[in-house]
Structures are given as structure tokens and as C-alpha cells.
């Protein structure tokens, strides 16, 4: 499964919604993801991609869209 598909699967799981946002669409402003789903999504990303996201990187803006999540994960490679 490619990176984007994995991210989408995580988003669907933590939001309990069958969503399909555009890559650049804000997950928060569009209401797709609420504040309390965000920490769950970050934990799921760590697990799925085998990384530890340090507290200093826990800026909601880094996880605001599929595109930004991809960019963050790329920066960790």
C-alpha cells in the first residue's frame, strides 16, 4: 500500500467516516477531523510508518492535510 493510501486508511479509521479529502484539503477547517482525533491519528501514523514523532514536531499544521502529512513523513526519511 502506498503512503497516501495508508494515510487515508488511518484518517478513515480515526474519524469513523468514509471520507475522501483532496490532498490539499484542510482536515480541520473542513471538519473532517476533530481535535481529539488528531492525537489518535498521530499515534497511528507512528505505528504505520515505524517512526517516533517528537513533541517538538507536534504542530497541528504539519498534519492539516494529506499533502502536509506526506511532506512531514518525507522529511523524516
Amino acid at each position: 500500500m502506498d503512503k497516501r493510501a495508508t494515510i487515508l486508511e488511518i484518517l478513515r479509521k480515526v474519524s469513523n467516516k468514509d471520507l475522501n479529502p483532496a490532498p490539499e484539503e484542510s482536515l480541520f477547517d473542513s471538519g473532517l477531523l476533530d481535535s481529539f482525533a488528531l492525537p489518535e491519528m498521530v499515534s497511528a501514523l507512528e505505528q504505520a510508518f515505524g517512526i517516533t514523532i517528537p513533541d517538538s514536531d507536534l504542530n497541528p499544521r504539519k498534519f492539516d492535510s494529506i499533502e502536509r502529512i506526506e511532506q512531514y513523513l518525507e522529511s523524516r526519511n
Binding site: 480541520f28 481535535s35 481529539f36 488528531l38 492525537p39 498521530v42 513533541d55 507536534l58 504542530n59 497541528p60
Partner: peptide, 13 residues
């Protein structure tokens, strides 16, 4: 309050 940042950090710390 940046609620998302607060919740994200608090959920970890």
C-alpha cells in the same frame, strides 16, 4: 487558545 496544539501536546505529556 490553540486547542488542537494543546490537546495534541497534553495527550502525549
Amino acid at each position: 487558545m490553540n486547542g488542537r496544539a494543546v490537546i495534541l501536546q497534553a495527550s502525549r505529556k
